[in-house]
Computed example of a mutant assay.
Amino acid sequence: MYLHTMTDESLHTIPLEHNIDYHIMSLFERLEAMRKDSHGNAINNRLSSTLQPKRNMQGEIRTLEFWRSIISECLASFFYVFIVCGAAAGAGVGASVSSVLLATALASGLAMTALTQCFIHISGAHINPAVTLAACIIRTVSPIRAAMYITAQCGGGIAGAALLYG
Rank of each mutant, 00 (worst) to 15 (best):
R62C: 10
K54M: 03
V97S: 10
A152M: 12
A134V: 13
A105M: 14
F66R: 08
S72G: 11
Y80C: 04
I158H: 00
R55M: 14
Q58W: 11
E9H: 03
T132L: 04
L11R: 04
C74H: 12
Y2Q: 10
I43C: 06
L51T: 05
E29G: 02
V93W: 01
Y165Q: 10
E65N: 06
M34S: 08
V81S: 12
I20M: 04
L64I: 15
L64M: 12
D21H: 02
R145S: 05
V100H: 00
G59I: 05
E73N: 10
A111W: 02
A87S: 13
R139H: 10
A42E: 10
F66T: 07
S108H: 13
H121N: 15
I70N: 05
H126S: 10
S10M: 06
G160H: 08
K54H: 10
V93H: 06
V141A: 03
M57D: 06
I137E: 02
A42D: 13
H121V: 08
A135Q: 03
A147G: 02
H18L: 09
S96L: 12
A146V: 02
A161G: 03
G92K: 10
L110D: 04
S96W: 06
S48N: 01
K54A: 09
V100Y: 03
F28D: 07
Y149P: 00
G109P: 04
R145F: 03
N44E: 11
Y165K: 01
M34N: 11
G94F: 01
S10N: 09
M1D: 09
A159G: 12
Y22A: 12
G90S: 01
T116Y: 07
A89L: 15
C136I: 00
I61M: 15
N45D: 15
A114S: 06
G94H: 01
L110G: 07
Q52N: 09
L75K: 00
S77F: 01
L102I: 15
V131R: 07
T113Q: 11
M57A: 11
I24D: 05
L16S: 08
I120Y: 13
I150D: 12
H4T: 07
M34H: 06
S108M: 13
V81R: 09
T13G: 01
